[in-house]
Simulated assay, not measured.
Amino acid sequence: MRTELDDVQLGRVRRQLNSVGRLGPDDIQIDQVERLLQEAGTDWDRRGHRFAVLAEAAATSTFARSWRRRRPRSADPLVFDAWVELVRGRQAGGMADAWAAAECCYRAADAVPADPEPWVVLLGILRLMRAESRELFAVWAEVSARDPWNREAYLQMLRYLSPEECGSRSSQLEFVETLRASVPPVAPVVGVELTALVDEHARTTAKGGVEALMARRQWTHIRAAGALDTALATWPREGRLRHAAALADLNLLAYALVQAGRVREAGDTFRRIGDTVTAWPWSLDGDPLQQFGYWQAKALA
């Protein structure tokens, strides 16, 4: 599985970060990361995707701290260090020093006011801390002012508003309804509604018993069927989805079609995906590669 999806340059740098040992990175590795982020320019969607993938890759090494020591006044190393701490915190179920990571975000935001990324990372930190909703919505407003359709920010808010975290099913639905009424058809956040539906399906299945057996009926309801129909009619078209995580959203669509019993209709989606498999949502049902391979073969048979 390639977390970089179809970003070839990102994949090369990610593999370099995976090789960073206990002695820390060399100057070439730091230069590669800096160049990769600079090349994204003000394409906030691409830049955010690269930050997230590289932070995952650097979470087991000393890269982030080494980069900060080399560039103590630069915004990108500050954001990256906070991202890495957030990744570690998610893995551990809590952050060792959330406020220090948050301070990195504030300092980066002061240094580069137009950049939404410090606020995106801060949103993730506050979500992990189970902060009050007014704090999260204030930070989300900062992201939206800089990048109105920031995929990561919307997904963070969606999960924060879920029954499993600090919200409820109704608050999550209200959030999705607001998004549906205004989102452009090819914005990076087009997959948020389908994400909510897959989360709801997984929630129902996890309950077991009769509810789990009837989970597939969820996809016949007007809201769910409509979301699937709309996505199926547009997303698999060549060049339709251009955001950095487009292949992740196509994986999401393929999975939703499988759960809805519409496997035959998923053929074009599986063809567009090719061999770029994402861990989520396939991991909900077992080994992602096995699940994807099985259903892709079924859809293309």
Rank of each mutant, 00 (worst) to 15 (best):
V183H: 06
A92L: 09
V79N: 04
P185A: 15
P116I: 11
R73I: 11
D97G: 04
P116N: 12
V53N: 04
G94L: 12
A101S: 08
A181M: 07
R70E: 15
A102L: 14
R151Y: 12
L128T: 02
R127A: 15
G89N: 08
R68H: 12
V121S: 07
E142Q: 14
A111G: 03
R159Q: 13
I125H: 01
F175N: 00
D115L: 00
A111C: 07
T62I: 03
G93N: 08
E56I: 06
W99P: 00
S66K: 12
L86R: 07
D97F: 06
S133E: 15
P184I: 08
R151W: 07
R134E: 14
R70C: 03
I125Y: 01
F63C: 03
V120K: 03
A111I: 11
A101Y: 03
E152V: 06
C105A: 08
A82N: 02
A114V: 10
S162W: 05
L158T: 01
V143K: 01
N150T: 01
G93L: 06
P118C: 11
R68V: 07
A108H: 04
I125P: 00
A52L: 12
A98N: 09
D147F: 04
L136M: 10
L78Q: 13
L123M: 10
W67T: 01
P77L: 07
G93F: 03
L123G: 02
V186I: 09
V143Q: 01
A59N: 09
R146G: 03
S133Y: 10
W119V: 05
R130V: 07
Y106A: 13
E56V: 08
R70Q: 15
C105R: 07
D76W: 08
A57Q: 05
V112N: 06
E85F: 01
R69N: 12
R127E: 15
